[in-house]
Nucleic acid binder design. Sequence first.
DNA 1: CGATTTTGACCGGCGC
DNA 2: GCGCCGGTCAAAATCG
Length: 370
Amino acid sequence: MNIKMNDHSTVDNEDRSHELEAMQAELGRMDEENKRLRVLLSQVTNNYNTLQAHLLAVMKQRDQSGHEVVQRQFIDLGPTVNTVVVDTDEPSHSSTAGGSQEISTSPSNNIEVGSLGTEEKEKLSPNKNNDQASQEATMRKARVSVRARSEAPMITDGCQWRKYGQKMAKGNPCPRAYYRCTMATGCPVRKQVQRCADDRSILITTYEGTHNHPLPPAAAAMASTTSAAASMLLSGSMSSTDGLMNANFLARTILPSTSSMATISASAPFPTVTLDLTHSSSSNQLQLNRSPATAPSSLPNIFGQPVVHNQSKFTGLQMSPETHRPSTLTDTVSAATAAITADPNFSAALAAAITSILGGSHPTTNATSS
DNA sequence: CGATTTTGACCGGCGC
DNA sequence: GCGCCGGTCAAAATCG
């Protein structure tokens, strides 16, 4: 081989012409790819605009109609962190102010879209063009946190978990427990469970990662939320300065009622979407009983109502306790997450909102601020 | 007896 | 460089 290379002109010229052809062909392919991407981008943009407009319209309707208020809480994270906090609180709470504060106490609250999570840095640093690798990294870091009142040590979410550690967290007298999904070997999903320092009746469960195996319905609800959040993060590479605006917009949309809180934060190490059910409106006293044996399949019972879009799925949370009393915290959370992901319209709107949020640059976005 | 929990050790990141 | 802290590991203990 090398010997031939040493031959001159004619061979060189032939090689070059071949190279040229190859390059041209390559260029052509890139051109096509470029076109395809542009089309895709325009489609996505259109969808986004449409959804946003729709969301706005819905929002206005809700504001005007007062409160059919369904409590939706949702949050998205920035490109790296997703956290969903679900709080099931006692009704007595005086809405917003308290709520946001509570959220702020939790580690995963505010969003600093500007800062990248460690995983992102990992992605960015080496020129690993493998989107997959980076995606996996991001997915793994995506977090969804659920806040709910519960006496039980851990919410039952339909998955099997194995505890692999426990630590005392600074500033919180209650230990933080670390669990790993054991439904399938090699499943990367983990979760942290910790009681709120301010109110020990509040259980904060933070999920991280995406299951690599089939899940039971109840677990799927939760998983789909986390996974969706992670996906959002992945797709949220666009940059926009209205991230904060969108975050607030999202919060208002999702949390029409003052009592419920949705927080989007991209702060700290991981972006987090927090679903807070602890401040649900007056009627939701989700007093979760703890029975650990709670069947995950009870999820559907929680929402006795069909999903009607424009009405958050969280409606179930507002249902009177008697309506479905055997609800556990897990059920509540599952229901909440299921609600979020069940409605195609809501999901789409949420996705759009999240996407826009992902591009945000403001450090702290308290979606719950009224 | 296998699966799960407990718990101290270990590790890496981060701030000073 | 050092210490703090969050997170994970892994051996021992416990459970079903």
